[in-house]
Nucleic acid binder design. Structure first.
Lengths: 117, 117
DNA sequence: TCGAGGTGCAACAATCTGGTTGCACGTTAA
DNA sequence: TTAACGTGCAACCAGATTGTTGCACCTCGA
């Protein structure tokens, strides 16, 4: 019935879901600039409430893209690139795989045409 | 207020949304194997109805990942790797950017520590 | 000490998403 | 010709997402 066959699938899946939202991509971008920031600070740069940002950060955290550490009364978030690297590698291999198979299909088609003409 | 700054953002966004769903990833996988297939054929390999598959294919089509062409009474779908390549490149550059900035932050932190001790 | 700032939690509303079913329409093949 | 097949469209449903607001709880600094 065809399920998720790749073993890296689960981790990569979370990253893709996380990256599918523009606000979350913006948060990653902003964190790359700032290095570290609190949810409240980050929220000032987006047109949504702090709570909304907190939820987005939770998604990013679950995907392993971000991590938060408590310092006194605040929580500072920062990037954690490993998961993104994994997703990039997965996409690259997927792209390579497509190319490989498409090339094979193309060869078959050309061979068929040669036989025909 | 921070919007999508990158110009490639819009195209890439669609691809990420498309890839965020496991069934859609499965469809891409299957199309890579088969080269070409109809919605009805594809639906047999998944635990959902043909109509659900048609909707997924529409999303993939909108993202530029697949294309369908009518042949008689059926519509044959096949892969179109360009968009995936674009997304891969985008993610790679994003990852590289993170690394660059993280390295800069790390250097700053180390310099501060050196000054302190 | 005590007020202000940052966080966490919960309830709620609205929209999106993924899925279903039923049916009409064109195309193919017996 | 006509029955079967593949497709397209529309209505509809349930649950997930995204956002809000209100409030309680710590922690810091004057």
């Amino acid at each position: 019935m065809r399920a998720e066959s790749d073993d890296t699938g689960k981790e990569v899946s979370g990253v893709l879901v996380a990256l599918a939202d523009p606000i979350r991509r913006g948060l990653l971008d902003l964190l790359a600039e700032l290095g570290e920031a609190t949810a409240t600070t980050l929220a000032e740069q987006f047109p949504v409430s702090r709570q909304a940002i907190v939820k987005h950060l939770a998604v990013l955290d679950a995907a392993g893209l971000v991590t938060g550490s408590r310092v006194g009364r605040e929580v500072r978030y920062s990037l954690r690139p490993e998961s993104l690297d994994a997703a990039t590698r997965w996409m690259s291999s997927l792209a390579a795989d497509w190319d490989r198979r498409l090339a094979a299909i193309k060869r078959t088609a050309e061979a068929a045409e040669r036989d025909f003409t």
